[in-house]
Amino acid sequence: MCDSCGCDDGSGVTITRLVPGLADHHHHHQHHKFRTITLETEVLAKNDALAARNREYLRRRKILALNLVSSPGSGKTTILERTIRDLRGELAMAVIEGDQQTRRDAERISATGAEVVQVNTGAGCHLDSQMVARAIEQLELHDDSLLFIENVGNLVCPAMFDLGEAAKVVIISVTEGEDKPQKYPHMFRAATLCLINKTDLLPYLRFDVTACREMAAQVNPDLEFIELSAVSGEGVGRWYDWLRQHREGLNT
C-alpha cells in the first residue's frame, strides 16, 4: 500500500495510527528488547466458547433453542404469545426475553403460562452467551422442549453474538421497508428462517412481499420464508410445522 496517501493495490486495506515517539519501534526488534508474539485468538472466543457450552447443554436435553431477532416493533413478542397459546398442549416452551429496560415482555409471556426470564441489558444492544447461560440456570426447562430467545430489538449487533441457539429466526413486518434485508445484510445472512409478519395489513400498505423475498435471497440464498400474521393467524400453521420439523430433527 502507498504510504503517502493510503491508496491500495487491492490486497486489503491497512490503516495505521502512529504514536509520536514510537514510530520507529520496529527498529528495536533487532535488540531483542521487544518481541512480537503470535496470538491468532478470536476476539469473540469467550462468547463463542460459552455459546458452544449452551448449545451442547441444549442438544443433550433435546431443547430446540431459537434466537429471534428483528428491529423493535416487528411483533416478536406477539408471535411468541400466539405460538405458546396455540401449541401449549403439544410442546413445552420457555422464553428468555431480552430488552434494555422493563419486564413488560416477560409479563406478557408469563400471562400465557410459559416459563420466562427477563434479561435487561441496561445500555447493552444485544444478548450474549453469558446472559443466556445465566438465564438458562434460572429457567425450569423441560427435556424435548422449545426455548425461544427474544433478542433485543436491533438488526445490527445481535447478528454477531452466538448464544448457543440452533438457528436465528429474523422477523420483518410489512410495516417496515421491503429493502431491510439489503440495508441490514448481516442479520439476514446469519438467519436460517425469515418470518414476514403482519400480513393482515398488506391491503393497506405498499409493501411488496416478492421484492422483499428477492432482496433477502440476494443476501442469503439459503434463507427460508414464512409469511404470517400473529394477529389474524394466517400462515401461522406453516411456522408451527417448521418448529415441529426442527424439533424432531434433534432426535436424529
Binding site: F34, T36, I37, L39, V43, Q182, P185, R189, V219, P221
Partner: peptide, 28 residues
C-alpha cells in the same frame, strides 16, 4: 454480501472468508 458473479451476473453466490475477527499478534 450483495455480489453478482462477474462472469455470468448470477446472484447465487456463496461467500468464503471475510468473517475474521482475531487478535493476530502482540508486540511487547
Amino acid at each position: 454480501f450483495l455480489v453478482l458473479c462477474p462472469s455470468c451476473a448470477s446472484d447465487d453466490v456463496s461467500l468464503n472468508g471475510g468473517r475474521e475477527l482475531k487478535i493476530r499478534s502482540l508486540t511487547i
